[in-house]
Nucleic acid binder design. Structure first.
Lengths: 339, 339
DNA sequence: CTGAAAGCGCTTACAG
DNA sequence: CTGAAAGCGCTTACAG
């Protein structure tokens, strides 16, 4: 395996020169550059990034930690980030925390040990500021994505969950619904709290008292949504519409509806959050909040790049405005006809 | 930042000793080990993997190249592989080729430059043996996943596409269908050819002449499926059932069906391939071929680990048997009633 | 515009 | 069971 030394010898220059043409740095005469390039070609030289990493004290690698890559929302986000990284010759380390802080910690320690250049973090449930503070000390640039953490000064890229919750609830109210439930999500989830906050604020605005029984937590999965809908149906038959924590929960809830021969959009209105690709293709297609996961990934990548390049501006919070996407899962007609 | 040298000095041993306790190698007396561990703790020493990578001439990093991480099939596979990697303290590089050989090449070159330990490759469309042969020379362990390439001796993990195509076609034939179409997938796709081969073999077995007009290629996306179904409906109204290249194509096709007020499973039978999570939650739920993407990811990881550890057995081909999953998209009743 | 040389932080072969 | 030292292949500060 040829090294930079071989290349240098082969064309009678120093290794410094070779290194410089390799990275387009410093002033090298065109003639020398050509000679070096040719030697590289002739020797089949391959740049050894591991040596550069050691010498540079940092690598061209960045991490992405997700809770659940299996959720299409995160796949889309990953695609957006991956694109951004590729365009900048950075390599992307991927790991799935599955919402376990222990896994998260392990991954981040590997990152540190690899001298990774940065991290896009969708923090696992239960991540505390203290943990982030230790990260801070280690000088690793971090961008928080999707899930915010209070009391940190890392940049954050996400959406306005409160407003999204309002948007979807207002839509249901406009359609005439008065008995509106909210299901799904973890009790400790801040995003859930915000979405539910938006939901409740709209109920109040319309003089409807939020009922505790209308609000149920559940794992943010298809099965979680299905189970939550099951108990909701049993105990609160008065409900005519349900706001789901996100699309995946909604899909599970719809499954339960169908098992009860209830038609979403006709017998009961249902909404999601995220606007995952599948949402447009279910039957009826899901009315939901579009959050542009891909855009979140892209913007997180951009923000991370800036930090890696040494930008030390104060904390930035990039909030991508949510949009209501009206499809068929809330029907077209006056819901009072059915409820 | 403390190094191994600092640790060694701090407890009066050599760096060799520290290195050895760090990696649980060689014989170190328990007393020495304890002293070293304590020094590490006291100094807040962090192992520098980049130095180890340079010294070892290879890293603890492996690559995963996908065509489309946005397809839930690949997300599931990624989750399976990621799990396997984590269990073995390997880091996973992810990249999306989007079926462009140029991107694929670039990623693999980065991997080589990083001295990655191996690669799980879902080759991009148009990958030729020649390219794989050069990889071979570079000594990078590679496992092919999902898409096979002829004329290479790399291990392969995938499913039996031909048999899967047969399974689904036989099901449709059993239900009484005689005019069965096959839509979706790229003309050059080997997997598509195999699935379609299975489909045709079953038609022939039942004395049905496969019609060219019943078989349409299309991009393997939702929109591709939707468009293909559109033209099929227009030109071949005699068709009562359609085998889709995979689930995502089927979801797009179903969208078109709905737009024409056609009910899948009643007016027309439709099947998928992959058994993506969504398939169980669409309405009607999709009859499809289960391929266990997660298992493919896991097995690919296992196979790669073996190769990394120096196993030089001849090429291994791991074929995970496909299973027919009957749901509602082909109906329950005699399809002749409708067609 | 180019060269000589130190050093990044490990691991391992060798000696004891 | 442990130590001294070479070397992995780069990059950069310095000198010219």
């Amino acid at each position: 395996m040829a090294t930079i030394v071989d290349v240098a010898k082969h064309c009678g220059v120093s290794t410094a020169t070779v290194s410089m043409v390799l990275r387009d740095k410093g002033r090298i005469s065109d003639k020398t550059r050509q000679r070096v390039l040719q030697a590289i070609d002739e020797l089949g030289y391959v740049y050894n990034q591991t040596a550069a990493n050691l010498r540079n004290q940092h690598s061209n690698q960045i991490g992405l930690l997700l809770n659940d890559i299996t959720n299409p929302f995160y796949s889309e986000m990953t695609a957006g980030l991956s694109q951004e990284m590729e365009d900048n010759d950075l390599m992307l380390f991927l790991a799935n925390s599955e919402d376990a802080v222990a896994r998260q910690k392990k991954f981040i320690e590997s990152l540190l040990s690899q001298k990774a250049g940065g991290l896009v973090l969708c923090p696992a449930k239960g991540t505390d500021q203290k943990f982030l503070a230790t990260l801070k000390r280690r000088q690793l640039p971090v961008i928080l994505a999707v899930r915010d953490i209070e009391g940190t000064d890392y940049d954050y890229v996400g959406t306005d969950n409160f407003y999204g919750g309002q948007l979807v609830t207002q839509h249901l109210l406009d359609l005439g619904h008065r008995h509106i439930a909210f299901i799904g999500g973890d009790k400790a989830s801040k995003n859930r709290a915000s979405r539910m906050g938006g939901y409740m604020s709209k109920l109040i605005e319309h003089n409807i008292t939020p009922q505790l029984g209308w609000m149920a937590t559940c794992p943010a999965t298809r099965n979680g949504g299905a189970a939550a809908m099951e108990t909701l149906l049993k105990h609160h038959p008065e409900v005519t519409a349900v706001v789901c924590y996100h699309d995946i929960v909604a899909f599970g809830a719809i499954r339960t509806l169908r098992q009860h021969q209830l038609e979403p959009g006709k017998d009961i209105a249902i909404t999601g959050f995220d606007d995952v690709p599948e949402a447009a293709d279910t039957y009826p297609a899901l009315t939901t909040i579009s959050v542009s996961a891909r855009e979140i990934g892209r913007r997180a990548g951009e923000a991370l790049l800036e930090r890696i390049r040494g930008n030390t501006e104060p904390q930035k919070r990039i909030i991508i405005p949510p949009k209501l996407v009206i499809r068929q899962s809330c029907g077209y007609t006056d819901p009072n006809d059915n409820g």
